[in-house]
Amino acid sequence: MHTVPLTTPDLLRGALDVERTEHGLLPHRLPARARAQCADPQLAQAESQPSGVRLAFRTRATAVELDTLPTKRLYTGAPPRPDGVYDLLVDGVPHGRATADGGHTLTVDLGTGTTEHRPGTPVTLRFTGLPGREKDVEIWLPHNETTELVALRADAPVAAVPDRGREVWLHHGSSISHGSDAASPTATWPARAALRAGVELVNLGLGGSALLDPFTARAMRDTPADLISVKIGINLVNADLMRLRAFGPAVHGFLDTIREGHPQTPLLVISPLYCPLHEDTPGPAAFDLSALAEGRLGFRATGDPAEVPAGKLTLKVIRAELSRIVGERAADDPHLRHLDGLELYGPADHAELPLPDGLHPDAATHLRIGDRFAELALAPGGLLARTA
């Protein structure tokens, strides 16, 4: 087997930064400067989970080995979470899947908010039976597990994939964009849409952390991209982070910052998907302890609808405000567009495919959302199509 240096240029895609650890390389989806500006452990966990990050290389190898060191999350009182999935694609077509059943564990007590970290050891994943011809191979890392890359080996030489001229799609959103409850890293809705449309994904879907943070906007400003989308709303409600007075200026500031680096790039603002929990009821959201007692994860809204006239945010309020803001800005920004999130997942979809925990879509719904986004936004003539 040939040992492949993980530092080979262009071998890792979808990450904005890479940290050297005692074991190997830890991909990050926010740059170090952004990470230094926020000490929130939720953000640290989310950005280190490599949603959309993949190893990509050109080879004749028929067998590939990857040593990884994942960090598993466990919730006290909740059922065990499934192991993260590694998807292997050959020339864009699924060809193998593996899980790493070892690694570190991080146990979270939802009642007290305390955590316990137990160290583990690296795991070797082996993919065999690959076609012996020259081909592009991608290994998509688990979207929901912090993953350190320890070593890569193959039974033939490996080189970086040459530039295929594909457009780079940069997306930011919440845990739904991150891929919560998707079946695998290529089955999160952004990955599904990107693979269908043939674009290169950089996914800044950050579970619990789509909060209009200025450092995220600056990271997007400084990241090369041909197409950009931002999905805004649900985290602002379930975190009860701001009121209507702050929301509008924060959206303007976020978009202004992106535009500093991408003045004419197609930019799509997506409003929230349908979520009965917060359509009319403000946040904050909280874990449903009665659901935990039954061994399942669930959420509830704890805000008071009577406070909406005083400026508390709901999903309906945010949809209306985003539509207004984009409409006003579009007069001076012809490359700015708006997509109502209800077109991706609305009341009729919820009746057929309800949100299992009250907040997040299931695996089948991720595929539906991804397919719809590919058609509405990434297809020729779609919302992210370039105009003269």
Rank of each mutant, 00 (worst) to 15 (best):
M1S: 15
P5T: 07
P9Q: 00
P9F: 00
L11V: 04
L11F: 09
R13V: 07
V18L: 14
E19L: 14
R20E: 05
G24C: 05
P31H: 08
A34G: 09
A34Y: 04
R35L: 14
C38L: 08
C38M: 06
A39K: 03
D40H: 06
Q42C: 05
S51D: 14
F57C: 08
R60G: 11
A63E: 12
A63L: 03
V64Y: 06
D67W: 10
T68F: 11
T68S: 11
L69V: 09
Y75F: 14
Y75V: 11
R81F: 10
D87L: 13
P94S: 04
D101Y: 00
T105S: 07
T105L: 04
L106H: 06
L110P: 14
L110Y: 02
T121Y: 00
P122L: 03
V123T: 14
T124H: 05
G129D: 14
R133H: 07
K135G: 05
V137G: 01
E138H: 12
P142E: 00
P142D: 00
H143G: 07
E148Y: 06
E148Q: 15
E148K: 14
R153D: 00
R153T: 07
A154W: 06
A159S: 10
R164A: 10
R166M: 06
L170H: 01
L170M: 02
S174Y: 01
I176H: 04
S177H: 09
S177Q: 07
H178A: 04
S180I: 10
A183Y: 04
S184G: 15
T186P: 12
P190M: 05
A194K: 06
L195V: 12
V202S: 07
G205C: 09
A210G: 13
L211F: 03
F215M: 10
A217H: 12
P224L: 13
I228D: 04
S229L: 15
S229F: 14
V230F: 12
V230Y: 08
G233V: 09
I234N: 01
A239W: 02
L241E: 04
L241H: 04
L241S: 10
R245S: 08
A246D: 14
I258V: 15
T265Q: 13
P266N: 03
L267T: 07
V269L: 02
Y274E: 00
C275I: 13
C275N: 11
P282Q: 14
G283Q: 05
P284A: 01
F287I: 11
D288E: 08
S290Q: 13
L292H: 03
G295C: 11
R300L: 15
E307W: 11
V308Y: 08
V308I: 11
V308G: 08
P309G: 06
L315M: 05
I318K: 04
L322I: 06
R329E: 01
A331G: 07
D333S: 10
R337S: 14
L339Y: 07
D340C: 08
E343R: 13
L344G: 02
Y345E: 12
Y345C: 12
P347G: 02
L355M: 06
P356V: 01
P356I: 01
L359F: 09
H360A: 01
R368K: 11
R368Y: 02
R372S: 02
F373K: 08
A379L: 09
A379Q: 03
P380D: 00
G382Y: 13
G382M: 13
L383E: 02
R386N: 13
A388L: 12
